[in-house]
């Protein structure tokens, strides 16, 4: 062993490269890497600058607070723009979608990582990934032609009929049972983030050291008890961060939501009735935006979305760091 090492060492040392080559290679690599690395920062900065610059007109016109809390979006007559309906729509749809998706996703991840045999786990995992690979617009069109009509016939109409007969006071809260609305969009959104949450949760579970599982086993824990006692507590940081990242995903999801939410730009929103989110209003109106103020308002909404996405990701990073379990040095 030792003699081998010495031999190979002397072989390398016997014919060193001319210093100029090594120096040049280093320099070229460093330049390329640093340029590409810094360009990411530049790109993000440039995007933020464009959004701020183009959105500034709307912010000047209505004030930052006024724009964020304004409830009227009227591009036709009064040219008054307020973002609150869309912020509200985005927050409600994505938070509820995450709430719907979280437990099924964690359950699927546990099955993949802990319960299923190798081949079965692979099949389930592949199927989950396939769901993630379906283009958003395909999910949307399925929603339009299959899911929304089905929801209208089987869910919204019966509820609506019942409310109309016995609880008329509920009607404004429930809204129009046209099939395209907040609930439909939220359910589709939940379906779309399940694969994402599942993959992140599974990764967090896979990172739990074998020793932790074995320690629980050695205490006489059954399979489920091992998961409850050793796996989930250890992975909790990763699972939570994964959930938050999924939330970020849901916030930004555009196409399927725009196709299914019904696109109603003004309050009040109702449970079954149409509504709108920040991405959906941008995609629906950017081509018809005639006035500068309208375009600027859409840009301003884009900026709000940008900031929300960054904040959500920062929160996820913070949770990961805060709840990370480092080798026996406390939590």
């Amino acid at each position: 062993m030792t003699t081998n090492q010495t031999a190979s060492h002397s072989l390398v040392l016997s014919r060193p490269l001319p210093a100029i080559y090594r120096w040049l290679g280093d320099k070229i690599f460093l330049t390329v890497a640093v340029t590409l690395g810094l360009s990411i920062i530049f790109l993000a900065g440039a995007m933020a600058w464009v959004l701020i610059n183009d959105g500034s007109l709307a912010f000047r016109e209505f004030g930052v607070i006024g724009f964020l809390t304004g409830t009227t979006w009227d591009p036709g007559v009064n040219f008054t723009f307020g973002a609150l309906p869309f912020i509200f729509g985005t927050v409600v749809t994505s938070v509820v979608a995450l709430a719907l998706a979280f437990f099924p996703a964690v359950a699927v991840a546990i099955v993949i990582a802990e319960y299923a045999y190798g081949w079965l786990a692979k099949i389930i995992e592949t199927l989950v990934h396939l769901i993630a690979a379906i283009p958003s617009v395909v999910v949307g069109i399925w929603g339009i032609f299959v899911f929304a009509p089905w929801m209208r016939e089987k869910v919204y109409m019966p509820i609506f009929m019942w409310a109309a007969e016995s609880q008329p006071s509920l009607l404004p809260i429930l809204g129009n049972p046209i099939g395209y609305g907040m609930t439909t969009a939220t359910i589709i959104l939940a379906l779309m983030i399940v694969p994402f949450t599942t993959a992140l949760t599974r990764n967090a579970i896979r990172q739990v050291p074998k020793e932790q599982r074995e320690a629980a086993r050695a205490l006489g824990a059954t399979r489920w008890e091992v998961i409850r006692m050793a796996v989930l507590p250890y992975a909790r940081g990763g699972i939570l961060a994964g959930a938050i990242l999924s939330l970020g995903r849901a916030v930004g999801e555009t196409m399927a939501v725009a196709m299914l939410i019904g696109n109603k730009n003004t309050f009040p929103f109702s449970i079954m009735g149409p509504a709108a989110t920040m991405p959906s209003v941008i995609i629906n109106e950017f081509r018809e935006a005639v006035g500068n103020l309208h375009l600027s308002s859409l840009m301003a909404i884009g900026l709000v979305l940008f900031v929300i996405a960054i904040v959500v990701n920062l929160i996820a990073a913070y949770i990961t760091r805060k709840l990370a379990i480092t080798g026996g040095q406390g939590i």
């Binding site: 074995e214 205490l219 939590i331």
Partner: peptide
């Protein structure tokens, strides 16, 4: 039949 492992394995969140 209890077991003690090579590395200490306290459950870190407990």
């Amino acid at each position: 039949v209890g077991m003690v492992f090579q590395k200490p394995t306290p459950f870190p969140t407990m």
